[in-house]
Simulated scan of single mutants.
Amino acid sequence: MRNRLDEQLELLNTELIRMGALCEDGISQAAKVLVTRDEALRRAVDETEQEIDRKEREIEAICLRLLLQQQPVAKDLRLISAAMKMIADMERIGDQASDIAEMVEHIRAEVLPGSLHIAEMARAAVNMVTNSVDSFVRRDMDIARAVEKADDEVDALFNKVKSEIIALIAEKPEEGETCLDLLMVAKYFERIGDHAVNIAEWVVFSLTGEHD
């Protein structure tokens, strides 16, 4: 019985890694769309978001089988419940990457050079998602805690973007609507960072039984 449970838990790990990789792809694709404004790449973001949704359903099914067909002990139960919480955050990451890609068509190309810190936010967000999932797979609380600290960097970058956009609106008030769209894109990246923190916090719960 325990061997079967361990096999299912290993499958859960594998599928979480795959879902995390899809989230990384979605964020990276969305950031590239912001720069290239490539329509085919924008559609690719939507396809990635749909794959993330399918993976969420697959992992939910694995978790339910573990709960109904196996006899997980307390530590296993924490791990399974944490995984179910994590995939909800990953699904939202996919949604927000898709939202970013959709907003690009409303942003005038000439405003984009001022979005340097948005590109940095995107890279930081990808790293946070990668590390949050890695902390779960490795059962490494130090990595999870590092993700929580990395959120400060994303928040600081968001504040820089806000300052840049305020200055741009003052300089070119006719670009106000476009600048607000750009600010919303930055906000989505900030939210992605928040979801990565949530994932890391559920990793800590799976290891300690305590949730921040």
Rank of each mutant, 00 (worst) to 15 (best):
L77W: 00
L64E: 08
G20W: 10
A170C: 12
V197E: 12
M19H: 09
R18F: 06
Q96S: 05
P173L: 07
A146M: 01
V126C: 13
P113N: 03
D151S: 04
E110T: 01
A170E: 11
I165H: 06
A122N: 08
I80R: 03
Q8T: 07
I59D: 08
V104H: 02
R18E: 15
W202Q: 11
H106T: 00
G176F: 07
A125S: 12
G209L: 11
I27H: 04
R4L: 15
D134T: 14
I80W: 02
E15C: 05
E51D: 15
E177Q: 11
A125I: 05
A30M: 13
K172F: 07
L79A: 14
E171P: 12
I143L: 05
R123A: 13
T36M: 00
D46L: 08
D95C: 07
A109F: 11
T208A: 09
V104W: 00
R145C: 01
M141Y: 04
L207I: 12
M19I: 08
L12T: 09
A200V: 07
R18S: 13
L66S: 00
V133K: 10
M84L: 15
A40E: 13
M84E: 13
A122D: 08
R54Y: 10
E10M: 04
A167K: 13
R54N: 13
E24P: 02
H211C: 03
R108V: 05
A196N: 01
D181R: 10
K149E: 14
L168S: 09
R54C: 11
P173C: 06
V137C: 05
E51R: 10
G209R: 13
M86K: 10
Q70M: 14
F136P: 02
L34E: 03
K75S: 14
N13E: 12
L5H: 07
E175G: 07
E148S: 03
D46P: 02
N159W: 04
N3R: 15
I165V: 15
R57Q: 10
A88F: 12
I87M: 01
E110R: 05
N159G: 03
L12F: 10
L9W: 11
D134N: 07
E51F: 13
C63I: 04
M1Y: 08
T36W: 05
L112V: 15
M141K: 13
F205A: 10
I59G: 10
S135R: 08
E120Q: 14
S163I: 09
R2T: 12
R18D: 09
M184Y: 14
V73N: 05
A186M: 04
E39D: 09
